[in-house]
Design a protein around this nucleic acid. Sequence first.
DNA 1: CGCGAGCTTGATGCCGATCAATGCATGTGG
DNA 2: CCACATGCATTGATCGGCATCAAGCTCGCG
Lengths: 247, 247
Amino acid sequence: MTEASTSLKPDAFKVACSSCNLRELCLPVGLDRPELDRLDTLVSTRRSVSRGDTLFRSGDHFESLYAVRTGFFKTCVSSEDGRDQVTGFQMAGELLGLDGISTDRHSCDAVALEDSQVCVIQYSQLEILSREFTHLQHQFHKIMSREIVRDHGVMLLLGSMRAEERLAAFLLNLTQRLQARGFSSSSLILRMTREEIGSYLGLKLETVSRTFSKFQEDGLLDVKQRQIRILNQDGLHQLVNGAGATC
Amino acid sequence: MTEASTSLKPDAFKVACSSCNLRELCLPVGLDRPELDRLDTLVSTRRSVSRGDTLFRSGDHFESLYAVRTGFFKTCVSSEDGRDQVTGFQMAGELLGLDGISTDRHSCDAVALEDSQVCVIQYSQLEILSREFTHLQHQFHKIMSREIVRDHGVMLLLGSMRAEERLAAFLLNLTQRLQARGFSSSSLILRMTREEIGSYLGLKLETVSRTFSKFQEDGLLDVKQRQIRILNQDGLHQLVNGAGATC
DNA sequence: CGCGAGCTTGATGCCGATCAATGCATGTGG
DNA sequence: CCACATGCATTGATCGGCATCAAGCTCGCG
């Protein structure tokens, strides 16, 4: 009932890392031909997740990692008393589920923000294969380490930035990742609500909305609901970094 | 000059994971005898770091991980405009340096808060050995995953808790980790300043100080500078979790 | 067309930042 | 041994940014 519309059965058709156009962003970075062929045996199924459905939930048994193939996700943790916090947004080529390794259970929820597809990576198989291929082992470690570094950046944001700085940093991070995937660096459509942005940034949705409006007044952005056009990228950068540096 | 009192040369004497009393908390968890013996060849040197000195700094070339053997560390990241943020406090048995794997350079500073010793773990060797021993490989992955989960917890704290809740959560986390190392769960000496606590919790030092005073008034703590005695642990727990749960 | 989810905008209040002064412990040199 | 400096902690007064409460507004959809 709770996962009524989630496709729990893997999709029938096969996919191959070796022919995937995300392979330069995803787990296979740096692998050579024979390694790629072996990886194909590991990443053999996809799973579709409809908008609003969960890929996994906190407490679920951990078995697989998931590479986003198409679509967009959020991950969120929640405390016992019901508070919850969006910990990240994931787009194509990014990995979901690393939190589960530590206790064999997931510690956060992963929710699709639009109809999405993920590649299912059996963790036990990944362990085996990464003992065989040093490149794969190293790449996997790098991905985990990168997640740690990213988290530290978010802590910096949450611990020491003001509302405008947080939103500017968020937008710049999003556009940078979109650009790496071949999208425009100046125009984007937000897949998440103001409330989800607020949760990620440690702000209330009203503050997010007001800050968008302020950016528009200041000529930094053009905001039409979830359609954002960046008019002055340098201006955003200065908000994040140059807050007091120009003195 | 900047690291005048740091011992850059590894200490001469050898150490062995197999005979270390931290082995149930550290990297060797779950390894059997022969595996432990091999690990001893990998973790062969210690390094001493005096109070106030850095073990590594942001930008340093990454080569090794460090397991805290004795002492206490903080890690902090800083942004271009000079803002900085304490991202964690590490005590005996905990690993430092995981951030460096992602780019081959460290992305944070690790500073000793008291005279400390660390075991030096050559990362390249760890990769080799963890291809051979599945337990070691798995344990290492668990440690990285645990760091990610911990970071998500800090994000929840920074994003959605109020000052009293943050400090209560911080104290409970500290005592829990100290207890796992055989120390009292009700009495502790803080190794860090109010300012460092504040940075970690996203608060100013005055707020940290005031909140300590408030806890004392409320009979939750006995505070004498850095000496803390917890008088009502349940009370602290209720602050963190039960904020609104009793309605 | 009307409903509802999500977004915007305004008015008000509070929590924690900021500014400032004092207190307390440790250490150093006269 | 005391005078003084220094680093850290405490406490008070005031201020400001963001939360909160409360209306409307927009847009997609049955």
